[in-house]
Amino acid sequence: PALARENNCLNAAKACNLNDTCKKYRSAYISPCTSRVSTAEVCNKRKCHKALRQFFDKVPPKHSYGLLFCSCPLGDQSACSERRRQTIVPACSYEDKEKPNCLELQDTCRSNYICRSRLADFFANCQPEPRSISGCMKENYADCLLSYSGLIGTVMTPNYLRSPKISVSPFCDCSSSGNNKEECDTFTQFFTDNACLRNAIHAFGNGTDRSVWQPLSPV
């Protein structure tokens, strides 16, 4: 029963900094992700990705998911959703000089064993199924959120798009897909328009998925 003006993403940040483990690993990724290393590079992306992976490895989901999957009232104009978009420090971990084609990015991912296995997990655990109540083939939101957060810190690092409803995507698009346009669109829609993933994120944000986690304590 949060107040209408409550900023859940801010509350998650506060809770994180009051917890020694979360505070430590949060600043351990924000530092490399915001430190300029040369005039050409805004940060050391490799170090930023590594520290992000460590954050999701070491910090209990109550705190790490609290920051990543916090729920915001309006999709776009609120301080809440901008804060949520900033969780992974997208200027370093997400954006790049050029936006690659998603199928090319997928090839890059497949050439790295961590990325390849994490992408496979994501496709397996967040597979949508319109006939199930959960919207998922495997009716387990926790596994879906775990696989999604596992992509953070790989070349497939996804982030929230500025969209009225929850929509996420890796930093790529389907321009210049040639004959593979359809395949590329299918790939991106698994991120941007995936009811299973969206339901899983909503369920965590609202604290309705009580079967899986100890719910966030009311603030």
Binding site: K23, S31, E82
Partner: peptide, 12 residues
């Protein structure tokens, strides 16, 4: 340990 936070202008 170090402490990080996001300010009102979305800068860390």
């Amino acid at each position: 340990d170090d402490l990080s936070f996001l300010d009102d202008n979305l800068e860390y």
